[in-house]
Amino acid sequence: MRVYDRERQEWAGGRRERLYHPDQYLDLPRQRRVLERTGVVLAVVGVCFGVWAFAWKDEPEPPPAATTSQGESAPAETGGSDPADSAPEDSPTVADAGSGVLPDGYEEAQDEEGFRVAVPTGWSRESSASQFGIDIVNYRSSDGSRRLQIFQVMEDSPYGSLQAAQTESTKLDGYELIELTEISSSPYAAAEHEYRASEIAGESDTGSVRHVIDHRFEASDGNRYALVAYGPDNADATERDLVDTAVTWFCPPDTTCPTPAG
């Protein structure tokens, strides 16, 4: 086949034809190898592309982040849980654990003079004017054999007040001192005068010996008070129970006090 040589502007033939169409004159074995290698390369490329396309198509999308009611992303949960979150709603609280329980046979009394005290259930109340502080208040048993007296103390210290009272008590018929002491275990200053006598001011003269515990103390309001228990001298612990319970539950006027622990 002859071709036109534009550079020379003439028709070329023979050797020049081979220069313009060299691929037509390659040997056949070489052409086959070229075609085989090209086919292998194309096959490998096709397989790779297919695998990639299949994996990309089936890959799951990440779930959307949880949002709050305002549309903000919610914080991720952390491992474990707060034990307080799993506690039952009716679990006792610290405040519940501190609630007090009155001894059997006692009741809480919010007195007209403003103080709180605990007295035996069913006791009657009477009062009289005092030269200092609140009125003198007496709670008395129905048979009249026992009495709890509350009043405010004028002296600066409970022990000094009892020393003065003890001097007067020695004038009573049948007076016998059991103990006159300061109480160091009390959170505030306190002292106690325990004695026997057959004559007691404010009591009818029966001729029988009476047992008295006179407990004087400084309260949380900074004032001093007396809680005095009177009863028959029969060697029981009733007067001691009266005083101890009254002291535990006593709260001075115009003061907020916690409920005693049970």
Rank of each mutant, 00 (worst) to 15 (best):
W56E: 02
Y4V: 06
Q70D: 13
P260M: 11
G100I: 10
S91K: 04
S86E: 11
V247N: 03
P158V: 02
V119K: 05
E126A: 15
T93E: 01
R216V: 15
L26T: 03
G105L: 12
T167R: 12
A66V: 07
E168V: 13
P75W: 08
E218K: 08
V51M: 01
R33S: 00
E239R: 04
T238W: 07
H211Q: 07
T245H: 00
A235L: 05
D233Y: 01
G105F: 09
Q166G: 11
R196G: 04
A43K: 06
E168R: 14
E239D: 07
G13R: 09
A190N: 00
I178M: 06
S73D: 12
R125D: 11
V51F: 03
F49H: 08
D27H: 01
D214S: 15
Y106A: 12
G98R: 13
D90H: 00
V101M: 10
D221F: 15
D5T: 06
D156L: 15
G207C: 11
E17S: 09
A237T: 11
P64S: 08
Q152D: 09
V41M: 13
T245V: 11
P22G: 08
A55W: 09
G262L: 08
L242I: 08
V34W: 03
L102E: 07
M154E: 15
E10H: 12
A197H: 00
S184C: 04
T167I: 13
F217M: 08
R216K: 10
D82I: 14
V117C: 09
S204R: 02
R125S: 15
G79P: 11
R146M: 12
D96N: 05
S198E: 01
V47N: 10
E107W: 00
G114P: 00
G100H: 07
S220I: 13
S127C: 11
P92L: 13
P253Q: 08
D23E: 12
G222K: 15
E7R: 11
G105Y: 02
A74S: 11
H211V: 00
G39V: 12
G122T: 00
G122W: 05
I213W: 05
A229N: 03
I178K: 01
H215W: 15
E199I: 01
G39C: 10
A229C: 01
T121N: 04
E176Q: 07
G133N: 13
A84W: 11
T248M: 04
L35Y: 04
H215M: 09
R210E: 07
D143A: 01
A118P: 06
L172S: 07
P75D: 08
R196I: 03
G79R: 07
R2K: 15
C257H: 11
A43Y: 08
V243G: 05
E107V: 15
A65G: 11
T255K: 09
D111E: 09
R146G: 12
Y20D: 12
S220F: 00
R16E: 01
C48S: 14
